[in-house]
Simulated scan of single mutants.
Amino acid sequence: MNDVWAFGQDSGHAVGQPLTGFSVEAADGVVGHVERQEDTPGMQHLVVDTGVWKFGRSVLIPAGAVTAVDAGAQTVKVAPSRDEIKAAPRFETDSETTDHGYLSEVGAYYLSLRASH
């Protein structure tokens, strides 16, 4: 997980593989499902609809937080816990997916989680 904005080589994610609709799972439970994904190099991330556990809001999860993709089961496993994802910088609108200030804040947050594990 060298780059927070890129899928790890051992994640099982194939370049161009669509993940929309896949279930997103942390070690402590389901986070939600992939609403959208961004595959631009250096900006790869998932927008995840968290459903009812987070009051129906979406969260942005950098691709570097993905630990495994299982195409058969249509699941994406992520390293952070549900509480860590809940505490991430709030995702409000799609315009934030191109806002470098917001992306820097999100990237720094997920990098700090990596350092603490």
Rank of each mutant, 00 (worst) to 15 (best):
D3N: 15
D3P: 12
V4P: 08
G8V: 09
G8K: 14
G12D: 12
H13Y: 15
H13R: 01
A14I: 09
V15F: 15
V15N: 13
V15C: 14
G16N: 11
Q17L: 11
Q17T: 00
Q17A: 06
L19I: 03
L19G: 01
T20S: 03
G21V: 03
S23F: 09
A27N: 13
E35W: 08
E35K: 14
R36F: 10
R36D: 07
Q37W: 03
E38T: 14
P41V: 15
G42Y: 12
Q44G: 05
Q44C: 08
L46A: 12
V47R: 13
V47C: 12
D49F: 06
G51P: 07
G51I: 04
V52R: 12
F55A: 15
G56C: 10
S58V: 15
I61A: 07
P62S: 07
A63L: 10
A65E: 06
A65N: 01
V66A: 02
V66T: 01
T67M: 01
T67N: 04
A68C: 09
A68Q: 06
V69C: 06
D70H: 08
D70A: 11
A71W: 05
G72D: 10
Q74G: 05
Q74N: 12
Q74P: 03
T75G: 14
V76P: 06
V78L: 04
V78W: 06
R82K: 08
R82E: 08
R82T: 00
D83P: 10
E84H: 01
E84F: 01
I85A: 08
I85D: 06
I85R: 02
K86T: 08
K86V: 09
A87I: 00
R90Y: 00
F91S: 10
E92R: 11
D94L: 09
D94R: 11
S95L: 09
S95A: 04
T98D: 14
D99M: 00
Y102E: 04
L103E: 04
V106E: 05
G107C: 01
Y110C: 05
Y110S: 07
L111W: 05
S112Q: 14
R114W: 00
R114N: 00
R114K: 03
R114S: 07
S116N: 08
S116Q: 05
S116G: 02
